[in-house]
Structures are given as C-alpha cells and as structure tokens.
C-alpha cells in the first residue's frame, strides 16, 4: 500500500487527466454523435449514406487502431497537435459512433404522433427534429448514453500507450518502481476507476430523474 500512499500526487495527477479526457471527449462525442444521428434520419440521401458509413466503419474498428491513425497518421498530412488533443480526437470520433446509434434508437422511440403533429402545424424537418423529436429522444437516450460514457471513461486508459499521462500511466509508473506491490497498485487503480464510473452513473441517474416527465 505504501507505494500508492507515498505517491498520491502522481495518482491524482494521472486521474485528473483521466477525468478531463473523459469530459472533453464526452462533450465532443455528444455533439458529433447527435449530428451523425440527425444525418442518418435526414431527407438528404448523401447525408444518410455518409452517416451510415461513418457508424459502420468506426464502430467496427478497434479503438487502438483509431488511436494509431490520429497519433501517427494526422502528422503525415501536416496536422500536428499535442498527444492530449489527439487522444481527445480519437476518443471523440470513436465514441460518437456509439452515441449516434443510441440517439437514433432514441429518435425511433418517440411516438410517431409527435412528428406527425409537428409536421401538420407546418414545421420543417429541421424544426421537427430539433424542437420536437430530439429533446424527447434525448430523454429516453439518457440510460444508454450513460453506458456509452462509462465505456468512454474506461477507454481513456488506452491513451496511456499514446503519450498521455493518465490514471493507468500513473499506475504503470508505480508498478515499475514497486514491482512487489503490483496487486495493491492494480486494485487501487481499479477502485478509483470504479468510483468514477459509479459517480458518473449516479450523475446520469440524477439527470434522468430531473428531466423525467411526471404523468
């Protein structure tokens, strides 16, 4: 246990990065994913195709491969940013495909009458989707989104192999320094992730209740 308690700073530093990485990528993925879901239900065929292609390709690629493309591919086309922004991009792009699927099934869960009514009072596609359907869809999408974002939290650990110092990197540094305490170090790291995941699911539970309609 000493290994961990004497190095709390290192652990805190690592997990601070884990948290910011998760929050930034979650926001990015929410925006990009909703946009892609909207594309997939839009009246414009090329947009539908693009959205469908994106989801199919990205969902079926390992996150580690996505990371490789961002960290070592983008510099080849002259885009060089830090490792942290690259990690945010890779996580955003990957997670967005799951957000898009969740949002799309949310859109399908909104009663058809809602869209019919909004269309019959003369709203356009954009208005129907943006003002009537999506707000209701997002409500039913909260539980699946919670799973997606908890997966995202766990996935940030992959950034450790791509130049980002986060929670798993911190634990790895300690394992290298205190080889005999591997078990304790791994257990404590796991518990921190678990605590963050529980916190996140509590936050989503609160959100779900806050936006629930009382009938």
């Amino acid at each position: 246990m000493d290994a961990v308690f004497q190095n709390l700073d290192l652990i805190r530093q690592g997990f601070t990065t884990t948290i910011t990485l998760t929050l930034l990528s979650a926001m990015g993925a929410l925006v990009l994913g909703t946009l892609i879901a909207a594309m997939r239900v839009s009246p414009v065929p090329p947009l539908r195709w693009t959205g469908g292609f994106y989801v199919q390709v990205v969902r079926n690629t390992p996150l580690t491969v996505v990371f490789f493309f961002f960290v070592f591919g983008l510099p080849e086309v002259g885009i060089v940013v830090g490792f942290y922004p690259f990690a945010v991009m890779a996580l955003t792009v990957y997670t967005a495909s799951f957000v898009a699927e969740a949002v799309r099934s949310g859109i399908n869960s909104v009663p058809v009458g809602q869209a019919e009514a909004s269309r019959s009072v003369g709203m356009t596609f954009t208005q129907t989707l943006g003002v009537i359907v999506l707000p209701q869809a997002l409500r039913s999408v909260i539980p699946p989104l919670a799973s997606v974002f908890i997966a995202l939290l766990k996935n940030t650990s992959i950034a450790f192999a791509f130049g980002v110092f986060e929670g798993t990197s911190a634990s790895n540094v300690l394992i290298n320094r205190f080889g005999s305490q591997v078990l304790q170090i791994l257990l404590i790291t796991a518990l921190v992730y678990l605590a963050l995941a529980l916190l996140m699911s509590a936050a989503f539970g609160w959100l779900e209740r806050a936006v629930a309609i009382t009938r």
Binding site: V71, F72, P75, E76, V80, G82, F83, A161, F162, G163, F165, S169, V173
Partner: peptide, 26 residues
C-alpha cells in the same frame, strides 16, 4: 522523471514511436 522533473516527459510503448513523434515535431 526523478532527476530532471522540469522536463515534460512523454512516454510511448516503443522507441520507434518516439522517433516518429520526433520526426513529425510532436
């Protein structure tokens, strides 16, 4: 990490990854 803490250490899995990052200015 221990003796030159002022440096901004970036870690990878293999030295070739570091070389690539160096070649493209990361």
């Amino acid at each position: 990490r221990t003796n030159y803490a002022e440096a901004n250490l970036v870690e990878f899995d293999a030295y070739t990854d570091c070389l690539e990052a160096l070649l493209n200015g990361q």
